[in-house]
Simulated scan of single mutants.
Amino acid sequence: MSLPTKTTQYSYPELGSYDNLVLSEVPVKPPKATEVLVKTHAVSLQYRDLLIATKRYPSAVLPNLVPCSDMAGEVIAVGEDVKKWKVGDRVCANFFIDKVNDVQTPETDNSALGGAAQGVLTEYRTFPAHSLVSIPAHLSYEEASTLPCAALTAYNGLLCGYEPLKAGDIVLIQGTGGVSIFALQFAVASGATVIVISSSDEKLKVCKQLGAAHCINYKTTPDWHREALKITNGVGVDHVVEVGGNSTLGRSIESVRLGGSIDIIGLVAAPDGQGPVDIIVPVLFRSLKLRGLYVGSVPMFHDMNKLITANPKTTRPIIDRVFPFAEAKAAFAYLQSQAHVGKVVIKL
């Protein structure tokens, strides 16, 4: 089979809106000795992609950026020194292509796809062989594309923190986006009791079907932290998956037990006018564990896939909608609408 010499990809001549995305054809070179050439079959979107598009992301991004970090595809060529991969293998690339252990460095940060490094919204891309992970056999390309950021962040938060989740723990999860749904699934698979908060009763019905024991609509119950305390007989939850940021952190602190864990993974909530949260006193006197997360490593990805493979029904990715490659802007618009439960995927 002759290798492609060109790829069609989306990029940003200028940031400011996802409407600025342009489609173009650029050259593709054969893989170097330690590289793998992959044909992209699916790309999933993150809230991060919207932040980058609108220049709200806190880290620097490349000019003429090819967006998106999460892909699943098929190996079509390998470099002469690559032993692990062969043509036809189904793979995902890790979010950080150079994070081969759990140590975060400026160098690993600079390998973040779709930001500090060129992304994956392209037909073909070469990757370092060390950055790739096999797709669980029971997952489609569309399902597998949701794993590198959303799933791995949820796995890192619940199972790789200061006090890893165990059966019988109580977990409070905010929202029904990609990370939140994976956190729900991994918590259920681990034998935990899950509380989910959302502004939509329809979305909470989906969470019930996925195994959530308790659901709270934070529009009708704005003091959801007090409801969580009632559910736990005043003790508080063991873990909080914090996706709202400054607007929800104060209530998260009030909902967690003494010595409990709050894994901070996002900032999706709109400002609520309360201003910065004073966290020093409650964190100090209640011995809380606050941990910021920035996705995960290649070995962590391998470990997560073991959990997914061992619990295929419970952990199957939830995909809300799949858009064709030609309608990538519509996919971004749908993600921005927050009408989705789970993931939004682009199929190539």
Rank of each mutant, 00 (worst) to 15 (best):
I279Q: 03
D238Q: 10
V322Q: 14
S198I: 02
S24G: 14
S297H: 03
T176H: 06
A167M: 07
Y18V: 00
K203Q: 01
V237D: 09
K230G: 13
V75F: 08
G211N: 06
L335I: 04
S131D: 08
A228W: 12
P27S: 07
S252H: 12
E254V: 00
E14M: 14
S140D: 05
K329Y: 13
E202K: 11
E242V: 04
A192C: 03
V196G: 03
G292S: 03
L15G: 12
L139D: 07
A339L: 06
K306H: 08
A93I: 02
Q46M: 05
E25R: 11
K203D: 04
I279V: 13
P128V: 01
I253K: 00
A116G: 13
N64A: 05
S44W: 15
T315K: 04
Q104T: 13
L293W: 05
F186V: 02
G114F: 10
G260Q: 06
F182V: 00
V196I: 15
E163L: 04
I197P: 01
I197Q: 05
K55N: 13
E80Y: 10
G259M: 05
N20S: 08
H239A: 09
K230P: 09
L258N: 15
P282L: 00
A72Y: 13
R125L: 12
K289G: 00
K230S: 12
V78P: 00
L3N: 03
V100E: 08
E227L: 02
V345G: 01
E327H: 13
Y10V: 06
A228R: 10
D278P: 11
P222E: 09
D49K: 14
R251E: 15
G234C: 04
K32H: 12
